[in-house]
């Protein structure tokens, strides 16, 4: 099962190396990882999407991350009300005649054309992973020449419904 985990970390040298190393050492599969600054000086947010077998395994990832000295806070936000987005850049083979057709495909996804050349067109799309994947599927027949995805970045919505909090996975962090 996929879990979305966010970690706030201090921007100290080696922190990313320590975190990716630990995930590898413990054989956790990372689907995506994205890192960027936060509103606080010196603090970054890392968003992981991991594929694990069960809840205890997810719990183990969180605990191992929490153990790192420069990691401030780790949360599994999968079952919460969240906003999760990723950005993809897709370069497709396309001549002038096909451009309108492609435009018609990408419009419902609110994707935009960001670059055009004689025989390619590049598209930018943001959204949750399903949306990004759906668009990629639709564009595949045209021949994808290049694809770059940022991986998911996410945080909690401003308001959390009560019901959702009961569904939280069990926690050993008493």
């Amino acid at each position: 099962m996929k879990r979305i985990i966010t970690a706030k970390v201090r921007n100290r040298s080696g922190v990313l190396n320590r975190i990716t190393g630990l995930l590898q050492k413990r054989q956790f599969n990372i689907e995506s990882i994205s890192v960027g600054r936060t509103e606080q000086e010196g603090i970054s947010r890392i968003t992981f999407v991991v594929d694990v077998d069960d809840f205890p395994k997810a719990e183990q990832i969180i605990k191992q991350l929490n153990k790192q000295i420069d990691v401030l806070k780790v949360v599994d936000i999968t079952d919460k009300a969240i906003v999760a987005r990723e950005l993809a850049l897709i370069k497709i083979t396309s001549n002038a005649q096909m451009r309108t057709e492609i435009q018609g495909i990408i419009d419902p996804f609110r994707a935009t054309v960001i670059d055009v050349s004689k025989d390619t067109i590049s598209v930018q799309v943001t959204g949750d992973s399903e949306k990004v994947e759906a668009l990629i599927e639709l564009l595949k027949p045209y021949g994808i020449k290049d694809l770059a995805r940022t991986g998911i970045t996410a945080f909690l919505r401003g308001q959390q419904p009560q019901a959702n909090q009961d569904q939280e996975p069990f926690s050993l962090l008493n």
Partner: peptide
């Protein structure tokens, strides 16, 4: 070390 609890053995009464 909370990470040791539940790592190898399913634990019913975790005491960190």
């Amino acid at each position: 070390d909370p990470a040791e609890i539940g790592k190898n053995i399913n634990t019913h009464i975790p005491i960190v």
